[in-house]
Amino acid sequence: MALTKLDQLYRAVILDHSKHPRKQGVLDKATAQIELKNPTCGDVIQVQLAIEDNMIKDVRFDGSGCTISMSSASMMTEAILGKSIDEALMLADEFSGVVQGKEAVHQKELGDAMMLSGVSKFPARIKCATLSWKALEKALETDGTGVDGQLKHD
């Protein structure tokens, strides 16, 4: 049956993140937050960060979307927790390469997020995978001094 091919995309880890998302919810004290929408599909994600001395001390996400976008957000929170802003931005950049079929140098740091490399075979779903990472980038663009806004996904 052709659905077996779906396993490339929806590995057990991915389904697990989507069913049991890590770091879902809201922070008491966020220093940066953002809401990003993908207008073509209606996915919405909020990402909140607590940044101290350039380090991501805590992170939460919330929102609604497909398995890929929600599991990717969950994986993203695990990958960036405890990282510096620069490291997090670097991972975001690498991740966007991974889902387009490029090799990643920091596979270990990306952790479970590497499981989404299969998305590269499903071009229509790449934006689902990168939504939370784009939100992270937008939130960090302001040096974590606190943004609250709504942005269109390009």
């Binding site: 209606g42 979307g65 497909c66 229509a124």
Partner: peptide, 28 residues
């Protein structure tokens, strides 16, 4: 199951269906 996941899965079965807001956000 999110409709996008449904459309991707059905596509693997050769069945082309659409997922999204169908250009009707107020209706959604």
């Amino acid at each position: 199951v999110h409709p996008h996941d449904v459309a991707t899965a059905m596509d693997m079965e050769g069945v082309a269906v659409r997922a999204g807001h169908h250009c009707a956000q107020p209706l959604m």
